[in-house]
Amino acid sequence: MVQSFLLQRVMLPSLMLALLLLSLAYWWLDNVPHEVFGTGLFALLCWHIYANRTWFKNLTRGKYDAMRAVRVFLHAGLMANMLVLLVTSVVISKSVFAGLPIPDSVYLREIHWFASYWVIIVTGIHVGLHWERLRTSLLNHLGFRQTTPALRFVFLAMGAAFALQGLASFETLGVWTKLTFNYSLDFWDFTASVTPFFGHWLAVFMLPATITHMLMAIWRRSGRRTSTSVRGASVDQETS
């Protein structure tokens, strides 16, 4: 049970993230490694979808409140983004799928690049949506049955650190320019340093994850307070 959890919820997503970050280093690794890492990413993504096939089966079951609708909408955005990235990857391939009789397109090449940057954002949001469950499961496996004030402070400090570094890395990498379909002549100088490139992109990935987790946590607490107030008002009416 523990091994299955670590594989599906920790090791597999971590490997997928590593392949995604490596795929962004095109100007360092060149085309062949880029396509190999991308192909590996999509192979693991297929396995990830299969492992979570129950989620898709349950889409038509149960009632939809606002939070569930938002979750499904955000996941749909992630799937659409990954589909665009997959299709454009095959079309513009120069190595892995070069033998396919598909004409190249400069426009699809541009869409591929823009989609790849958006994947970082939407996958970060995806992690943020599941952060609470992942954190709780990890703490249970580590022997922590409840979150202590000290752990809450550590998590809060980590979240703040991720957010601050994410904002700084957003600026360093010119991410907003890339996300708004604009061109930039600023490229990372891999001859000067390599490791900071991945560190910055990891921080960019963690920024939407942290923001999404915080917003969902606030939403859940607000919903619980509203529900408690409604129940309290109902009790008062019955006893009056």
Rank of each mutant, 00 (worst) to 15 (best):
S193G: 00
D30P: 08
G77E: 09
I218P: 14
T136E: 14
M158P: 02
L22M: 14
A25Y: 05
L29W: 06
T228N: 13
W219V: 10
H126Y: 07
F170Y: 13
H75L: 13
G166M: 08
M82L: 11
G232Q: 09
A18T: 09
M158L: 01
Q3A: 11
P33S: 08
G77V: 04
S14M: 11
H130A: 06
V2C: 05
F198A: 12
E35H: 00
I211T: 04
L12H: 01
M11F: 02
M79C: 04
I92K: 04
L108E: 00
D65G: 09
A80V: 03
V154K: 11
H34D: 09
T39C: 13
A51T: 01
H141T: 04
L173I: 10
V32Y: 00
F205R: 12
L100A: 10
S116M: 07
L207D: 09
W131P: 08
D104R: 13
I211F: 00
L139M: 14
P103K: 08
A80D: 03
K94A: 08
V96S: 10
L7V: 04
T228W: 05
A161P: 06
L151M: 15
L129C: 13
A157G: 10
D186C: 03
S95Q: 12
F5Y: 01
L21Q: 08
S240R: 13
R61E: 03
Q165F: 12
V235Q: 14
M16C: 12
I111H: 03
R109D: 01
R221S: 14
E132P: 02
T239Q: 15
L6A: 02
M82W: 00
V204N: 07
D104M: 11
S193D: 03
R224T: 09
H130R: 12
L142M: 10
I102R: 04
Q165P: 10
V204D: 06
A161I: 07
H48T: 07
G199K: 02
A160Y: 01
Q146R: 13
L86H: 03
R109V: 01
C46H: 05
G40K: 11
W113Y: 03
W27V: 06
A115W: 08
T239Y: 05
M79P: 04
F198N: 13
R133K: 11
L139V: 06
T60K: 13
T228F: 02
W47S: 14
Q8E: 03
I92F: 02
T172Q: 13
M158K: 05
A80E: 10
G223V: 04
W131F: 08
L22W: 05
L139G: 09
V154Q: 09
P196T: 03
V10P: 05
M158G: 09
L74I: 13
T191W: 06
Q8V: 02
Q237I: 02
Q3N: 11
V2G: 10
N52T: 01
L142V: 02
H34I: 14
A157K: 04
L19F: 11
F162S: 15
I111R: 01
A51G: 10
I211K: 02
I120Q: 07
Q8F: 00
T177D: 00
S14Y: 01
